[in-house]
């Protein structure tokens, strides 16, 4: 399989060389052609800088970036065959929607009739056929997002970059757009790389993802892999708020003396269970309840389906789980 984007020991430092801020710190990464790739991490973890390194708005301090095998480390943004959907959409307010979408074609010198035809085609693809002559200011957030998408896609990029594409939308719209983006990507077969801090979004949309922490990739893999088998405490906690068990607790549960993760949804109330603790809090989640437990020094959360009898806060309970649910992490 062809590699669409490749990072070879890429670093991006800001500030003085004596005390640099290492936004991206020695990242190796390879994104396959046609992938729907997510860069997931908290703010300041380096994921957005990585995206900007691909688009060319940042230059690497060290290392090489290749797009389809070509080293683009010294190529300015306008000569890279990638396009970006910006977080704030960055639509041009003085142009109407059609001119916005046709902008990339216009600067390449395509004639008016041809570029408008293509722009209208793209607008139809994102279900905005009737909005060509409106100004961006007259559109809703979701519509602007679609225009930004059409404006990027009309250039037929080989890689589409999306910076927190759904961050500004409300929940309902976000879910609809998730499905739509997914369908669009499968239909066009373009490599999509998107940045998000929302683990649900990354898990549900991506076919592979990289979890960033402190400028480094903490783990890279399929969503199933990353969710079920986190490599570090950070990944376990950040992706799906897993319970992180200290080595001593792991051993008391029958594992080796190593850090382990235990998914909240794999726990159930079981009088014979091996985890014993005091209920500290109960939280209603709609379809389920979250029960917080103090086990020794550790805080353990369990997600219990609705309809079960609930323990009282302050009471002692026991929780059980399948032996396979306990995931031992590599990290010492």
């Amino acid at each position: 399989m062809t590699t669409a984007v490749e990072f070879r020991a890429v670093s991006r430092h800001f500030g003085p060389a004596s005390a640099p801020v290492k936004a991206v710190d020695g990242v190796d990464l390879s994104i396959a052609e046609g992938a729907f790739f997510a860069m997931l991490g908290p703010s300041g973890s380096g994921k957005t800088t990585c995206l900007r390194l691909i688009s060319g708005f940042e230059s690497p301090t060290a290392g090489e970036i290749c797009i389809f095998g070509e080293n683009v480390s010294a190529t300015p943004p306008h000569l890279r065959n990638v396009n970006t959907v910006f977080q704030d959409y960055a639509l041009f307010p003085h142009m109407n929607v059609r001119d916005n979408v046709a902008y990339g074609l216009m600067v390449k010198g395509m004639g008016r009739a041809q570029r408008y035809a293509k722009a209208d085609e793209m607008l139809a693809l994102v279900h905005l056929d009737a909005y060509g002559s409106r100004k961006p200011g007259q559109l809703s957030g979701g519509q602007r997002q679609r225009v930004a998408l059409a404006r990027a896609l009309v250039n037929e990029p080989r890689v589409l970059l999306l910076d927190e594409p759904l961050g500004a939308l409300d929940l309902k719209l976000r879910e609809a757009m998730q499905d739509e983006l997914r369908a669009l990507q499968q239909r066009l077969g373009i490599t999509f790389v998107f940045v998000t801090h929302d683990q649900h979004e990354a898990l549900s949309m991506a076919d592979s993802l990289a979890v960033f922490n402190n400028g480094k990739i903490a783990q890279i893999g399929t969503p199933e892999d990353v969710y079920a088998k986190p490599r570090t405490r950070f990944v376990a906690d950040f992706v799906g708020s897993s319970n992180v068990l200290p080595p001593a607790l792991t051993r008391s549960l029958g594992g080796p003396e190593k850090w382990a993760s235990l998914r909240p949804e794999s726990l159930r109330i079981d009088p014979e269970g091996r985890l014993q603790g005091t209920v500290t809090a109960l939280r209603y989640l709609g379809a389920a309840h979250r029960v917080n437990l103090k086990v020794g020094e550790a805080d353990i959360g369990a997600i219990l389906p609705a309809g079960q009898p609930l323990p009282e806060p302050g009471s002692q309970i026991r929780l059980g789980f399948d032996a396979t649910a306990l995931h031992i992490m590599d990290e010492a």
């Binding site: 306008h78 396009n83 970006t84 902008y103 600067v107």
Partner: peptide, 27 residues
């Protein structure tokens, strides 16, 4: 004029001169 506007223009393939003429100057 937000910086992302200029980045968007470059991202879409515009040279600096084109960005100046079609985005910066009108705005």
């Amino acid at each position: 004029v937000p910086t992302t506007m200029l980045e968007a223009s470059a991202d879409l393939g515009a040279t600096r001169a084109q960005t100046f003429r079609t985005v910066i100057l009108p705005l």
